[in-house]
Simulated assay, not measured.
Amino acid sequence: MEGVRGKGTDVLVHRGGASVVTLTGSAGRAPYYRVEAGAADAIAPAPVLEAAGSRPARGPVPGEPGVPAYVTVRCGGMGWTLGLTEADGPRRFAESVEGHGYEVVHYTGRPGEARVECGEDGPVELWLLDKHFAPDRRIAAGPGRHEIQPGPVQVRGLGRWRITVGG
């Protein structure tokens, strides 16, 4: 699915296993978009990312190699570009990472306490992902200090955020 372009709403099939999807809205007006993903037998697809504007957003596509996962892009009448990277593609961090909007990062440090900060654009949630990139459990629902474990973490928020472990 690398470099797939579309407009409006579309459903795509991915058979490559756990991946990170990156979606970029078209330039110009600030479109709102949402991406959902799930296996063929899922009752309902899970939200992977939400964003507004042309800034890229990243989210996990859960799956196992050879098993189809359906990716639904909802973007009104606006254009978009979608790309996938392997599960080892997220930025890695041991002490601190910052970003904007939805993203998948990989914590490489020891289990401990993380300080989560977010900007004025609203709160941010952190979800620990399992080895198939499916959400395992929510570890933070807003700013403050929260326990973190090594592994892939999905950040869900619309504004700026920072995660600092230790200090």
Rank of each mutant, 00 (worst) to 15 (best):
E95W: 00
A44N: 05
L128Q: 15
L158Y: 13
G157C: 12
H14I: 01
S54Q: 08
R145F: 04
A134L: 05
I139V: 15
G122C: 12
G77M: 08
G112Q: 09
V21E: 02
K131Y: 00
K7I: 14
F93S: 12
G122Q: 09
V124F: 07
R34I: 03
R5V: 10
V11R: 05
G3I: 06
G66K: 06
P31A: 06
G112A: 10
V104K: 01
E103K: 01
Q149F: 11
Y107L: 13
R15S: 09
G17K: 02
I148A: 08
I139W: 13
A44W: 01
A134F: 02
P65S: 05
G76M: 08
A134C: 04
G16E: 10
R29N: 10
G83H: 14
G77N: 15
G122W: 05
P135R: 12
W80M: 10
G17S: 04
K131N: 04
L82R: 10
G167I: 00
D130K: 02
P150A: 14
R91H: 05
A51C: 06
G8C: 13
G83D: 15
Y70P: 00
G157Q: 11
A114T: 05
G99E: 04
P31I: 04
P143N: 08
D121N: 09
L12E: 02
L84V: 15
L128N: 01
R55K: 09
R58Q: 13
Y70T: 06
V20A: 05
V21G: 03
G157M: 10
G63H: 06
I163T: 09
G76I: 09
R29C: 03
A44I: 03
V13Q: 11
R160H: 13
E103W: 06
T85I: 14
L49I: 03
P45H: 01
K7D: 12
D121A: 15
V97W: 03
V21A: 15
A57F: 02
A51R: 07
T85L: 14
W161M: 06
E117C: 00
T9K: 15
W127H: 12
L129M: 05
P152S: 15
G109P: 04
T22N: 03
G53W: 11
H132A: 14
V61H: 02
P150Q: 12
K131A: 14
G77Y: 06
P47N: 01
A39P: 00
H106C: 08
